[in-house]
Design a protein around this nucleic acid. Sequence first.
RNA 1: GACAUCGGUGUCCAUAAU
Length: 347
Amino acid sequence: NTLIEGYCRKGNVKEALTLFNAMSRQGLRPDVITCNALITGHCKAKQFEEAKRLLKRMSSMGLAPDLVTFNKLVNGFSEQGMLDYAFQVRDEMVEKGFVPNAVTYTALIRALCKKGRTQEALQLLKEGTAEDGLMPDCVMYTILIHAHCKKGKTEEAMCLYDDMVERGLVPDIVTYNALINGFSKKGQIDKVKEIFNEMLKRNLVADRFTYTTLIDGLCKNGKLLEALGLLDDLRQKGLMLDVVVYNTLIDGLCKNEEMEKAENLQNLMRKDGLLPDSATYNPLIAGYCKKGNVQQALSLLSEAKERNIVPNARSYNCLINGLCSKGNTREAKKLFDEMLSRDLIPT
RNA sequence: GACAUCGGUGUCCAUAAU
């Protein structure tokens, strides 16, 4: 079960099913836990019908689906944006006598939020509280806060925050990160600082999400030097450095056409043992093209390809644009064909 | 009998550049 679960988590249902079949051959009966894991696997692999079929097959194997089974389905469908399926499963579990719990509601609320349907999400939370004895918790509030922030509705997000605190719930680092992200994307840096201080008051320690969020916020508000300063703090602490932190800064620098600094950071990240990924290459390629340094952009492209990383369609567009404006239409056409062969869709 | 399976936050892109 542990192995099957591992493969399923990675979205490798094939391998999981091989193990599943091997189990039977060795006379080991799959149990509910095995099936629950496979449901996750199918959902991750977007095999929604398979997931539903497995639920039906469980009964014929003499296994009774439990609350986790249903929750995994609700969650799996929600994660993939399959709202209708998710609510269908909710109805089905209710029919079977299960009471949707915090996990069920959280999954559904998140699914609605992901589609921007925050009002319905709030409504569902109310419903659950009234009908199923649901106790709204920190996670649910955080999802709602996050969703409102993403829509730019920071005021509403703040009301939700106040609401949860009034109810005696304790916001955690995730809640604060969501708020910080919302306010900094809106450019309300003073509000960000206020929230950050409140976070510190609660003895919460900034994690890599907090730092990345702060760095991104500073970059997107043109405060590149401050953002670089935060990176220095992080490096001195020697912890919490990952590709995303570097990518964030590299993007900020590239968008401001500070290619030398972006180049330095790229070297620094390699020094820290981190390898660029597509989110590193894309802004760099765009930045160099914009500056007219197509050569440099092209060499990044070939490096990415060597490492089996495919830059996105926009990177190709930038390169094609750059080559054409230098009159090198032949190379541009080559890149155009190349992007087609890589299943990238021209716009 | 114990243990193992379910929910939230960050970067490019997606909402974009020419």
